[in-house]
Design a protein around this nucleic acid. Structure first.
Length: 507
RNA sequence: GGAGCCGUAGCCAAGUGGUAAGGCAGUGGUCUGCAAAACCACCAUUCCCCGGUUCAAAUCCGGGCGGCUCCUCCA
């Protein structure tokens, strides 16, 4: 089976274009990963989820994907943090790398096929730097090596900047030793206490940017398919990568398509520690569950910025007491709907079979092609989410109204819908859990948040069951009222009475 | 100062030339001892404003207004 064709928005061309791979049916993807110097926050999650969803989408469409996501483990931020805490910089970044990967796994982000680190690619970085020096595109000053931007005429094409404007807008003090203000470091001479390696220019360490040129060439080749990253990386990081890579390897090499995800904003403001809107992965998991965040993210197109809603309760001094995420709670309810549907569907198929081979109702065949079309059109995940909703509604309708439909046809259709909901869910990184496990985890989380006494709830439920059995509906309703006051919703089903936490109930 | 993005119903959000997906909330209904869940129906003559191009514009062009981002090693 050959891969389904894809159209994608290329940041460099600034338009949607048909994707042409270097090698048929294969895609090499390089995504700029984290610089691990502190715990990951939901901004990291958004970036990781955007490209994970693109990766899953490509796989769903039949492409053989090689996914490379680097770790920048040698960097000023890491060195500074290590100095503050008295740790070894590489040990510190290794620690936060492990934490980062564990955090991303919670949000169903697949591990990369290759996860290269700066510290293990020093030789490759030196080699490409040497190539640039030899070609007269970089120069050495006091053990530093700088890329000379003037040697690359296309500089600024990706970001829409002109070199002259960059000089005019320069806000940081210009290093007088550089030939031009826009020139940037490929290699930095060692300073005391910093990690350093031997090089032809003396001991030192790589500058920022060069590692991605070296590592992408090493693992994907000098020309590869897709390069991704956050919009903030367009300038200078990606611009510099292009200049370095093409300077070293030739003009028409490097990434054939550039993908950039939008940023997360918070009530119109940028995320920052001082605003108190840097939310951790653990905090999200505790408040709304990880799948709610993933579902919320894939309900937006990856290129659009997300204005992230939160409601903070603060004390008189302005310190944060509590944070709520209403839009994530809504996403969690929607996720619950899908799992409830899957659970009903699973039970139905498990009890009476899948109807064997044969046709299904026509609407039940629409989910996969609809998802395929949406993914193939610049990875339009929100449209896939809509298609999932249509399919779940159809499943519920078939489950509700069996009469008038051929028995085996109905079973086949439902079995098909159950499979396809999961397959398409996989493409978005959602609906991968066991429905019962999801329901349990959700209830446990809400019980914990509300500080509910489960034994008390179960006692009231038992009493109500007695009353109902005795047809004492007045008493049953009174008990329901008590449970409602506790924030518990009682669900009478043919299979018995279940309960859940009432949404919006007092904490 | 330079570069770029965005403005679609009460809210969230697709749609980039062919006559407004989907979700939340809301209203009515089916079902139910009562509920909930689920399902059905209704819910933008219109896409920030003003011009223009076109047989046709939310989509293209010009001009406003409003919000945001990058140029600060922040994902």
């Amino acid at each position: 089976m050959s891969a389904h064709p894809v159209r994608l928005y290329d940041s460099l061309r600034r338009q949607k274009v048909p994707f042409q791979p270097v090698v048929p049916d294969r895609v090499g993807v390089y995504v700029c990963g984290p610089t691990p110097y502190a715990a990951a926050h939901i901004g990291h999650v958004y970036s990781a989820v955007c490209f994970d969803t693109i990766r899953r989408g490509l796989i769903f469409l039949g492409w053989q994907v090689t996914y490379v996501r680097n770790i920048t483990d040698v960097d000023d931020k890491i060195i500074n943090r290590a100095r503050e805490t008295g740790q070894d910089p590489l040990a510190l970044s290794a620690h936060f790398t492990d934490e980062y990967n564990a955090d991303m796994a919670r949000f169903a982000v697949l591990p990369p096929d290759v996860e290269p680190r700066v510290s293990t690619h020093i030789a490759e970085i030196i080699a490409i730097t040497q190539k640039l020096v030899d070609a007269g595109k970089a120069y050495v000053v006091d053990g530093d090596v700088y890329f000379e931007v003037a040697t690359f005429s296309a500089y600024g094409r990706l970001s829409g900047q002109s070199v002259d404007d960059l000089v005019a807008g320069e806000r940081v003090a210009v290093d007088e030793r550089k030939r031009a203000p826009a020139d940037f470091a490929l290699w930095k001479a060692a300073k005391p206490g910093e990690p350093a390696w031997d090089s032809p220019w003396g001991r030192g360490r790589p500058g920022w940017h060069i590692e991605c040129s070296a590592m992408s060439a090493t693992h994907l080749g000098e020309t590869f398919d897709l390069h991704g990253g956050g919009k903030d990386l367009v300038f200078p990081h990606h611009e510099n990568e292009i200049a370095q890579s093409q300077g070293a390897h030739g003009t028409h090499t490097f990434a054939r398509y550039w993908l950039h995800n939008g940023f997360l904003n918070f009530d119109g403001e940028k995320m920052s520690r001082s605003e108190g809107n840097v939310f951790s992965c653990t905090q999200i998991e505790r408040e709304v569950g990880t799948e709610a965040l993933r579902f919320y993210f894939v309900s937006h197109h990856y290129r659009s910025p997300i204005d992230f809603e939160y409601v903070a309760t603060r004390d008189a001094a302005g310190a944060l007491l509590d944070v709520k995420f209403p839009s994530l709670e809504a996403a969690d309810r929607r996720v619950e709907y899908f799992y409830t549907t899957l659970r009903r569907n699973d039970d139905f198929v498990a009890q009476g079979g899948d109807g064997g081979e044969g046709a299904v109702v026509p609407e039940a065949e629409q989910l996969v092609p609809a998802a395929r079309d949406a993914i193939a059109d610049d990875f339009n995940a929100p449209v896939v989410v809509a298609a999932l909703g249509e399919a779940a509604r159809l499943a519920n309708r078939l489950l509700d109204e069996g009469k008038g439909v051929d028995k085996a046809l109905r079973r086949r259709s439902l079995a098909r819908l159950g499979r396809d909901l999961r397959a398409v869910g996989w493409a978005l990184g959602v609906l991968g859990a066991d429905p019962a496990a999801y329901a349990r985890a959700r209830r446990d989380r809400l019980v914990r948040k509300r500080g509910l006494d489960v034994a008390q709830v179960e006692g009231l439920l038992a009493a109500r069951a007695e009353a109902r059995k005795a047809k004492d509906f007045a008493r049953a309703d009174a008990l329901r009222g008590e449970l409602t006051a506790l924030g518990v919703e009682v669900l009478d089903t043919p299979g018995g009475t279940d309960w859940r936490i009432l949404d919006g109930a007092p904490a």
